[in-house]
Amino acid sequence: MTVPLEYFVIVAAALFMTGAVGFLIRRNLLVLLMSIELMLNAVNLTLVAFNRQYVGGHAGQIFTFFIIAIAAAEAAVGLAIVLAFFRLRSTVRSDDADLLRN
């Protein structure tokens, strides 16, 4: 028995929504970083799932490798920026990033 394609796509969509909603409502910078990772992983799952439908090529799976690599680089830069912020402000709450405003 194989699991139908729709199941994977729906799980991935739910993951993506979790990440997106988490990004919009949470106030901790580290949680925001994690939400972004969750969204990227949802994209990976979507790509790999759809790849089953298009057996001829492996574009979806290859795409996923690139996303994993880029996500790691992005996390490195993101954590460095959050660390720099924490050193100056001693907090990782996004509400405290309030120096620049209209």
Binding site: F23, L29, L32, I36, V77, G78, I81, V82, A84, F85, L88, R89, S94, A97, L99, L100
Partner: peptide
Amino acid sequence: RSTEAAVKYFL
């Protein structure tokens, strides 16, 4: 200011 700008732009 610079770090905060980076945080916002990055996110």
